[in-house]
């Protein structure tokens, strides 16, 4: 039996995946419910100010809030890309290093773009 026990470098990716999964399970449904259903419906019922631009900006007025928002976006991206990477493997697609770079590269790119956009929002 020849079996090399190579140490896996999966742990950091798995931790990001796990953190993103927690947020996706706990917070994302509330965000979808709020932005996709409650806010538009409340607009129809007369209160159109719930998702107003100025209100949203004031929500993100402190650096901490902005960092949290950028972190939320980043972790969801790492979660999704890690899932897609393993899904490809499960479907029998042997992408090798190229697939790994494509998946985790996308997650890194989304994280950076999210950070730049959120931090660069105008202050109210």
């Amino acid at each position: 039996m020849s079996r090399r026990l190579r140490r896996s470098h999966e742990p950091p990716f798995w931790l990001l995946f796990g953190a993103g999964g927690l947020l996706a399970a706990l917070i994302l449904p509330a965000v979808v419910l709020f932005t996709g259903l409650i806010a538009p419906l409340s607009g129809r019922c007369g209160d159109s100010g719930l998702l107003e631009h100025a209100r949203m900006l004031s929500l993100l007025s402190t650096p901490i809030a902005r960092l949290a928002c950028a972190g939320f976006i980043a972790l969801l991206a790492w979660h999704a890309c890690h899932r897609i990477y393993h899904l490809c493997h499960d479907l029998g697609l042997r992408g090798g290093a190229g697939l790994r770079w494509a998946c985790y590269g996308t997650a890194a790119l989304v994280s950076v773009i999210g950070l730049v956009l959120v931090m660069g929002l105008p202050h109210p």
């Binding site: 079996r3 026990l5 190579r6 140490r7 896996s8 999966e10 742990p11 798995w14």
Partner: peptide, 14 residues
């Protein structure tokens, strides 16, 4: 630990 931490250890499980 070596077997546990290896790719073919716990990390091949999804």
């Amino acid at each position: 630990r070596e077997a546990r931490d290896a790719t073919s250890g716990v990390w091949d499980c999804t």
